[in-house]
Nucleic acid binder design. Structure first.
Length: 163
DNA sequence: GCCAACGTTGGC
DNA sequence: GCCAACGTTGGC
């Protein structure tokens, strides 16, 4: 089998809901509640264990990248879609044909310094980044160079694997 | 398969 | 709280 090139991602979370500190405490967390087909497809088809992920805080002040996570599992059915008491319950989803998939995320690092959206927008190094152009996706791909630049600005100690 | 209506996201 | 952008739904 051909060796896969590592890929890079960004996930959003409202810190009131689930923050980087929550992930630091939990260590590992099923990334449930994603109810957007393109986001699901990325998790199901494109992510692989070991891929690095930027952790972004949305709907807060200020917004921006606050940490690094790592994909820690293959995709599997999101259990919240079957839970009638969950706000993520989906009546159209069945055990045979689950509609929503997720992966587990594992804590890697909280950035020494948050990288704010303002900075990202202002820096030409980030031209073309999905976060800037089609910002609403809650799971999105990140180019290697953009990922590396975030790590630099955030003072990260995380090492990006060589190709 | 089009597209209008509607719902959600998320920055400001 | 506003509203623009965008995704989803459903009638035709």
């Amino acid at each position: 089998m051909a060796k896969r090139v590592p890929q890079f991602w960004l996930i959003k979370s409202e810190p009131n809901d689930y923050s980087i500190d929550d992930l630091a405490r939990d260590g590992r967390e099923p990334w449930d509640g994603v109810r957007n087909y393109s986001a699901r497809n990325l998790m199901r088809d494109k992510m692989a264990v070991g891929d690095l992920v930027l952790f972004y805080h949305s709907s807060t002040k200020p917004v921006g990248v606050v940490g690094i996570a790592r994909v820690a599992s293959e995709a599997y059915a999101d259990p919240t879609q079957f839970d009638t008491r969950s706000k993520y319950f989906d009546p159209k989803s069945t055990a045979d044909k689950p509609r929503w998939q997720l992966v587990d995320m594992e804590f890697v690092e909280k950035l020494p310094r948050m990288v704010e959206l303002d900075e990202i927008k202002a820096d030409p190094a980030f031209d073309g980044m999905v976060l800037v152009t089609r910002g609403r996706l809650s799971v999105q791909p990140v180019e290697r160079s953009h990922f590396a630049q975030i790590l630099r600005l955030g003072g990260s100690k995380t090492k990006v694997r060589a190709r």
